[in-house]
């Protein structure tokens, strides 16, 4: 489902954030990327749909080339790769419903959408996605009047509205109270199981990673330091991922 080969990302001016990553993710996996902050998890995820431009390497997602894709091809690849952000990244002044509807932007005709006209099917789908995260009753509310946990659920609904093959989530619970972590992660697991969607979720919390992942990829200084099932994660490996012996 996701094929990453030799990925290298250098952020200006000269920070090597991702330093030669190879990764194959199969359909239906729930991959948790584990690592300290600054290990390159965020940059790696942002490179997968080219929100950050890779310096070298190739990326294919759901059979489509992401690297080397032209503008139109990139948009087609992007609409099947939904992203959930640490800071939710909702449009604050827009309604909840409009935020979810934004997930359909890659599918609808551009000009009518800019004028605020969306096909009824897309509107219905957006409401359905909102219902799946249990927030149908808040559809008319302005996004910034919701709590953090609710906002992240709206962001998940927006991701679902993209009808994606893959969902990437960058530290989706890091900006929330600890007790909300499991509610968000539970929704992600349900999506993974019920819709057979492939998930790649970055986490810095070990317990959460162990509880939800079918596979754990440990990042350390821009490289993959561990790749295996949660059961194979020994204390020595954990120490290697989190160790600060040679931290930058």
């Amino acid at each position: 489902m996701i094929e990453v080969r030799g990925l290298r990302v250098v952020l200006p001016p000269d920070t090597v954030a991702v330093d030669g990553v190879d990764l194959l993710v199969n359909a239906g996996e729930f991959v948790v990327i584990l690592g300290r902050s600054g290990a390159g998890k965020t940059t790696f995820l942002r490179a997968l749909n080219r929100l950050v431009e890779p310096t070298a390497g190739t990326i294919r997602v759901a059979g489509r080339a992401v690297t080397g894709a032209g503008r139109g091809e990139l948009r087609e690849a992007r609409r099947r790769i939904a992203v959930i952000f640490q800071q939710f990244n909702l449009v604050r002044r827009a309604s909840v419903q409009e935020n979810v509807l934004a997930g359909r932007l890659g599918y609808v005709r551009a000009l009518p959408s800019v004028l605020g006209r969306f096909p009824p099917d897309d509107r219905a789908l957006a409401l359905e996605c909102l219902a799946q995260v249990g927030l149908a009753h808040l559809a008319e509310r302005r996004a910034d009047t919701l709590s953090g946990g609710e906002q992240q659920r709206v962001a998940i609904a927006r991701a679902l509205a993209q009808s994606p093959d893959v969902i990437l989530a960058d530290e989706p619970t890091a900006s929330l109270d600890p007790q909300l972590t499991s509610s968000i992660m539970d929704i992600l697991r349900r999506i993974n199981v019920e819709r057979r969607l492939t998930l790649v979720v970055s986490q810095h919390q070990l317990e959460t990673a162990l509880a939800y992942a079918t596979r754990i990829v440990g990042f350390r200084r821009g490289r993959v330091g561990f790749d295996g099932p949660p059961s194979a994660l020994s204390p020595a490996v954990i120490a290697a991922i989190y160790g600060d012996g040679d931290a930058a």
């Binding site: 690849a77 992007r78 099947r80 952000f85 990244n89 909702l90 934004a102 932007l105 962001a155």
Partner: peptide, 12 residues
Amino acid sequence: GPVDAITATGAT
């Protein structure tokens, strides 16, 4: 942030 989010949907 919101610009990233909209970009990620495949928007023009």
